[in-house]
Structures are given as structure tokens and as C-alpha cells.
């Protein structure tokens, strides 16, 4: 097992970044912490700084104003870091594709490991996405 796989073997710490979202996905991410879904039983938790995190969850479209901040946060992350695009907005732009303030889908800005579509994706979908991603990472 290499160091890279070892990093994602156990408790994943998650940093949440709202690039330009409508709050919907952000609230659903917070919902994961609450008793019904309770991701903390897997050792996952939301952390306050990207420097502590293994996973970067990005919600919302990347706007012109947040683009430089998203790049900055990605550069501050200790690598390897998994980037997950949550919701239709960072995956493709969704309903906001025609907006003049849309700086492109997330994978045009930073490398993305997993896409979880939906507006907003259900908390179960987010869990399933993370599990699938981890399985694929551990198989590599």
C-alpha cells in the first residue's frame, strides 16, 4: 500500500467550500452530520481549515469573484486531496450555465475526483458517492 492509498484508508476529514451556491447543497451537507445520517460514526467530520482536510467538497457554480479563491484554497490543501463536486452547479453549471458571472464548470478550474449530480443531491447520494470514490481509490 502506497502512501496515497494510506491517506484515504481511515477517518476522512472534510472541508466544505461554497463557490457560489444557493445554500441547498450546503444545508444537505450539514444534514449529513445530524442524527439521521450521522457521518461522524465513520470518522468523517467537517473541519475548519483546508489544511487539515482530506476531502474538499465544492458546491455551487464557480463565479468570477470566487474563482481565484477556489484556486487559492485548492493550492493550500495538503496533497493528496480528494475533490468532490456536489450538485449540478459545479458538475456542469446546471441552470446557471448562461450566466455572465459563470467562470466555467469546476473541472475547468481544479481537478475533480468525483461528481455527485442532483439539485440538490440527497444526503444518501452524497454518502454513496464518497463510498464509491474511496473504493475506486483503494483498488488502484
Amino acid at each position: 500500500m502506497g502512501l496515497k492509498e494510506f491517506c484515504f484508508k481511515k477517518s476522512l476529514w472534510v472541508f466544505h467550500l461554497s463557490a457560489g451556491s444557493c445554500n441547498n447543497c450546503d444545508i444537505e451537507i450539514l444534514d449529513l452530520l445530524t442524527p439521521r445520517y450521522d457521518i461522524e460514526r465513520f470518522g468523517m467530520k467537517l473541519v475548519g481549515s483546508i489544511r487539515h482536510a482530506d476531502v474538499l467538497l465544492v458546491t455551487g457554480i464557480v463565479t468570477n469573484k470566487t474563482k481565484s479563491r477556489v484556486l487559492e484554497i485548492y493550492s493550500q490543501a495538503s496533497k493528496p486531496v480528494l475533490v468532490i463536486a456536489i450538485g449540478a452547479c459545479p458538475c456542469t453549471g446546471g441552470i446557471f450555465t448562461s450566466s455572465y458571472n459563470f467562470a466555467g464548470p469546476l473541472d475547468k478550474v481544479i481537478p475533480v475526483d468525483a461528481y455527485i449530480p442532483g439539485c440538490p443531491p440527497k444526503p444518501e447520494a452524497m454518502l454513496a458517492g464518497v463510498v464509491k470514490l474511496l473504493k475506486s481509490k483503494n483498488r488502484e
Binding site: G20, S21, G60, T63, I95, S98, N101, F102
Partner: peptide, 23 residues
Amino acid sequence: TGYNHRGIEKICESKTFEQVFYV
């Protein structure tokens, strides 16, 4: 503020009256 500005008013003007609901 202004980080979340998505230009919704302009998008609405390019949609039909029925589509604006979803925007």
C-alpha cells in the same frame, strides 16, 4: 458580499414565464 452573484435577474429575462419559476 457578492461572491454568490449568479446573474439570476438576467437569466430570468432569457427564459419563458413558466421556466422562470425554476430559476
